[in-house]
């Protein structure tokens, strides 16, 4: 799931200051799970905008607004109201915001801050485990991502700053390289223990913008 957090509503109000007729689109997938863009949050935004003197032209939750195919189908339910809409508040991740903006050709305002790809512990408690970087190295690290879990994003750790157990930065958390080592030992992955990762090829990260 892609984790989002609610934006400060002042920023949304400021971005909408020049617009009167506002639509609201929520995301019934990731943003719904992390309580930033589900039907409840869409309703809350509707109330807020109405109280701010805006005219809310429509509200809708779309299953996956980042998927053009789904968006194209679902947006038809509000196409008449869209005609009369000046700006749309989108309660989804940045990909959803941009996909909708491109599709409707109207001003879109992001209602959330996009964070990271997250594991859901409980509703409201999430862990960042994947940065979606480029070449996945999990097969060589005991199955934990050092790029995401090490604040320095090191491939060949640990750094010189750990205290023997815990991370230099997050002193209450175990250094991910200790965990990686333990897992490789557990799975008898001797070849991975001695593996040296070459510096990352960031050229791949640029290329991935269009796969």
């Amino acid at each position: 799931m892609f984790l989002t957090e609610k934006k400060d509503v002042k920023e949304i109000d400021e971005a909408l200051s020049r617009y009167k007729k506002i639509g609201i689109i929520g995301c019934a997938s990731c943003a719904s799970v992390c309580l930033t863009g589900g039907s409840k949050e869409v309703g809350e935004m509707e109330k807020h905008l109405a109280a701010s003197g805006k005219e809310v032209t429509f509200t809708i939750s779309i299953d996956e607004p980042c998927d053009k195919r789904v968006l194209k189908e679902d947006i038809r339910f509000v196409e008449d109201e869209m005609e009369d809409t000046e700006a749309v508040v989108v309660l989804s991740c940045g990909t959803g915001v941009q996909t909708i903006g491109e599709f409707i050709g109207k001003k879109v305002v992001a209602g959330t801050d996009s964070k990271y790809i997250a594991q859901t512990e409980h509703i409201g408690e999430y862990n960042a485990l994947c940065g979606g970087c480029d070449e996945c190295r999990l097969n060589f690290t005991g199955g934990v991502c050092t790029i995401t879990l090490c604040p320095k994003g090191l491939l060949n750790g640990p750094c010189e700053g750990h205290n023997g157990v815990n991370c230099e930065v997050y002193e209450d958390k175990e250094c991910v390289f200790m965990k990686s080592y333990d897992l490789m030992k557990k799975y008898s992955e001797e070849e991975n223990l001695s593996k040296i990762f070459n510096p990352r090829d960031y050229g791949l990260s640029v290329k991935r913008t269009k796969i």
Partner: peptide, 21 residues
């Protein structure tokens, strides 16, 4: 040392290569 542990805690760290790199 990570910028978060310094006075420049808003700085973007690089770590393009590590010391093995």
């Amino acid at each position: 040392i990570h910028p978060l542990k310094t006075v420049f805690n808003a700085a973007k760290p690089v770590y393009d290569v590590d010391i093995l790199g």
